[in-house]
Computed example of a mutant assay.
Amino acid sequence: MAIDVLVGLPHLHHGAILRRAKAMQVPALISANALSRWSRRKGWPEWLGWKFDHLRNAQGLASLSLDSAGFVAMARYGGFPWRTSDYLELAASYPFRWFASMDYCVEPEIAPDREEVLDRISRAIRANLDCRSGARDRGIEHRLMPVIQGRRPEDYERCLEGLALDFSRTRLIGVGSMCRRHVRGPEGLLAVLDHLDRILPGEGMLHAFGVKGTALSELRGLAHRIASIDSQAYGLAARQDALQRGVAKTDMLVARHMQRWTGKQFSRLANASAARQPELLLPVQETPPSDRWEQAIAQARAEVRLLVEDGEIGHEDISSLWIEQWAADIYRDRLAA
């Protein structure tokens, strides 16, 4: 079984990049952020909706899938600028091969501590469930790809359990927070994928977001589990090339790097060894906080996570101040007891 390589496109404008992607006839991926309309008339970026007309330019691509832009949304805007209903409107506007659920990434620059990671996993669960419900109402649930999140391998299992997927209907699952991850180690890419391989039923397949090219030589042994990977890393190579040569980073330059990068990824997959030893790593043991205020914070966050997953609190509505107020009530109750 071959692993598909999806080429991440920076936009769908007519030009060299889109022409080259159509000529290559490889599956492509577009980010919701790349299809967003913005205004700075008020002095800050204001989201105005989608560039639906740009999707007409995708005709002729081998296939096109849609990513919710979770990392970009958190890194640039501090959260999703659009609501779940807005995103599903975009997903329903074009026959995407699949569209990824909205999710909450946990890269270290976004979730710097363990509690924030756990918070974001709960929000990812709720976002997935909301997307599933909305997609079902719009008749596009069959094209929805759930996305699981985590830092440690067991985090992804926790997220998977929260989604309660029916694998007779859902065959493809996205694995988020992969692109800035080491290949090896207890929280490495291979540890995560090996763990998921052990716990998923036979029909469950994975799409690994943003996998490093250096990891591809290790993935052929997981070809029975990994359906596809994607990356837009060629854009970085094009920028470096332009800087070194003192030339403009034109779409033509980016298109050449895109074709060169894609060929290199296919070569890595073809030449990789199919045999490899899975990494068996012990789960990390948590040490509970000893400070009473920190205990109250931990309890507050745990209670809020449950409410988020149950749909009592919207996944977009949580703030650190809100958590602290919740913890203050717990702290006062403990002092009074």
Rank of each mutant, 00 (worst) to 15 (best):
E116W: 06
D103L: 01
L219Q: 06
D310R: 14
S39P: 03
V5I: 15
G60R: 12
L335F: 08
I173R: 11
A248C: 02
V183M: 04
R56V: 08
E303G: 08
A298V: 08
N128M: 05
A272T: 09
T287E: 14
S231Y: 02
D103M: 04
S36W: 04
V7G: 07
Y234R: 01
R76V: 10
S228C: 10
A92L: 10
A336K: 15
A223T: 11
D137P: 00
L129T: 09
N128T: 11
G8L: 08
M102V: 14
A296H: 04
F99W: 13
F167D: 00
F266D: 01
Y94M: 01
I318G: 04
G213F: 07
G311A: 06
G78M: 06
L90M: 02
R181W: 06
R220Y: 06
G311C: 05
S39C: 02
E116H: 10
D197H: 12
P153R: 12
A242R: 00
R268F: 14
V26G: 00
Y234L: 01
M145S: 13
L307N: 03
A215C: 05
A21R: 06
R220W: 10
G314H: 14
K51F: 01
L35C: 04
L160Q: 02
Q325T: 03
A255M: 07
T287W: 02
S133L: 13
L9W: 00
E279C: 09
R332K: 11
Y104H: 14
V175M: 09
V211C: 07
S290C: 07
D317H: 06
D119L: 15
A238C: 02
A227F: 14
E309R: 12
I17V: 13
G60E: 08
P95V: 07
L35A: 04
A124H: 00
L280K: 14
Q265H: 12
G150Q: 01
R332G: 02
L144F: 06
A275D: 13
G78D: 07
D103C: 06
A238V: 02
I173M: 12
L6Y: 15
M258K: 03
P289T: 05
R114P: 06
E324C: 05
R292F: 12
S168E: 15
L48W: 00
R180M: 12
T84C: 15
C159A: 12
G162N: 05
D86C: 03
I318L: 15
G78F: 09
A75D: 10
Y94R: 00
Q277S: 08
H54F: 08
Q299S: 13
